[in-house]
């Protein structure tokens, strides 16, 4: 029973990331023009968080596949999101290996660097592919994602602690 719960919790990370990818299609059907997607990229934050917290199913290959799904859904050149996800994953893994010498602030700064490289990579690919893009929207998105991380971190930590407690009680 505990083993099954363990698997369920491990699967939670990848399921939340997948939901964040599909959220672009879910929000598009509501009349409320909230345009959340403009101000932050939830998928980047979730990938960083779950990789940093050593969740199962987060690997270079899964980042590659998740990137292809994102690109296929949003219609941008294949591989663009994979490049961004793998960059964020690599930096999160590096930061995770030096976890003992780090604190939340260092984790946050490392996320900033990862996001900067990921957004730069996307803009370069979009520029080379000849498509139009709004650099300002991407800059706002980068800033929004960076600022939002502490809140996401807090919510996910509280949620995961609660789920772990329930697992122990069971």
């Amino acid at each position: 029973m505990i083993g099954r719960k363990n698997n369920y919790l491990e699967f939670l990370g990848i399921a939340i990331v997948l939901m964040s990818i599909w959220s672009t299609t879910l929000f598009a059907q509501f009349s409320l023009n909230l345009n959340f997607y403009k101000f932050f990229n939830m998928t980047y934050l979730l990938i960083y968080f779950f990789t940093f917290n050593n969740y199962k199913y987060f690997s270079f290959f899964s980042m590659f596949i998740l990137g292809l799904i994102t690109d296929s859904i949003s219609g941008i050149p294949f591989g663009t999101s994979s490049l961004a996800y793998m960059t964020i994953y690599k930096i999160a893994v590096f930061q995770e290996t030096i976890k003992l010498r780090t604190n939340f602030f260092a984790e946050w700064i490392a996320l900033g660097i990862a996001l900067f490289i990921a957004y730069a990579a996307i803009l370069i690919v979009l520029y080379l592919s000849g498509g139009s893009f709004e650099p300002l929207v991407h800059i706002y998105n980068f800033i929004g994602s960076f600022i939002l991380y502490p809140f996401i971190w807090l919510v996910l930590k509280l949620l995961l602690i609660k789920l772990s407690d329930r697992k122990i009680n069971d």
Binding site: F61, G67, L68, F78, G79, T80, L83
Partner: peptide, 30 residues
């Protein structure tokens, strides 16, 4: 493995931009 996946990703981006015939068919299926 990391190098290989980064290379495959860059190859995908390249092939997608140049509308390569076989890649286009694979992409359509995906």
């Amino acid at each position: 493995r990391v190098f290989l996946l980064f290379s495959v990703t860059c190859l995908f981006i390249y092939l997608d931009n140049f509308n390569q015939k076989y890649f286009k068919n694979t992409k359509a299926v995906i």
